[in-house]
Nucleic acid binder design. Structure first.
Lengths: 117, 117
DNA sequence: CTGAATACATCGCCTGCATATATATAGCGT
DNA sequence: ACGCTATATATATGCAGGCGATGTATTCAG
């Protein structure tokens, strides 16, 4: 699977991260890998994107975090909360509506564009 | 239909504009309205967004334009060309792959989020 | 011991959309 | 005639957020 245009992912990265976190607590690096696998290699969120994003979600009180210093590897575990789940539901619904909108738009011109090779 | 979060539309405005133009030549203001109607009011692309976007598409040789000064209302008609149609096909395919990716991601956590009211 | 992988963080740059502003004409009501 | 709204295009300014680069530190494999 080819990498997606980054501009396309703007506006749905939050949604993706919240989705992954909805499956259970994760630390950043793990989340990064799971998102990569879940998208079959298409989504490769960079560290410089992920960590600020997580900090933003935290300051918005959608997730809470906790350091685990018990091992040599310091890990910061993130867990989605009720507000986060609610936000996820809202954003998921909004995204589906948007996707329907685009799909409709594309369907009306489907015969006006050349077939992809 | 409520207005979409602008961040959500980033990266797909080109796609939408090319889609509308694939149906036939349009001038900016008309395109703006047709996109508004086609999305049942959800997409309201602003003039300050639309015109620079059209200029970009033009300088990328995906559309060509022509002034119509025959009436008092100066209108700049835009028409999609072969390169534009090809780009539209590519972007449409890319978008559908991306949408599938998100849909899959959301499906796996569908039972972990509260039902929207 | 060296290099790669793990793990988190921050900074500066760039893209692209929003807002605001500007210009000018057409058409309508009063 | 006057003012308001709609039509029609254009640019400047600002900002949010993702990217690449860079930094720190630990673990593990060769």
């Amino acid at each position: 699977m080819a990498k997606f245009n980054p501009e396309l992912m703007r506006g749905s990265l939050d949604l993706m991260v919240l989705s992954i976190l909805a499956a259970g607590p994760k630390y950043g690096y793990l989340l990064q890998q799971e998102l990569h696998e879940a998208s079959r290699g298409a989504v490769d969120i960079q560290a410089g994107t992920l960590y600020p994003l997580l900090h933003r979600l935290e300051s918005d009180k959608l997730i809470r975090c906790q350091w685990d210093d018990s091992t040599g590897r310091r890990r910061k575990w993130y867990e989605i909360n009720d507000a986060g789940r609610k936000r996820l539901a809202v954003q998921a619904r909004e995204w589906q509506e948007y996707a329907d909108c685009i799909r409709t738009l594309l369907a009306t011109v489907a015969d006006a564009v050349p077939r992809p090779a």
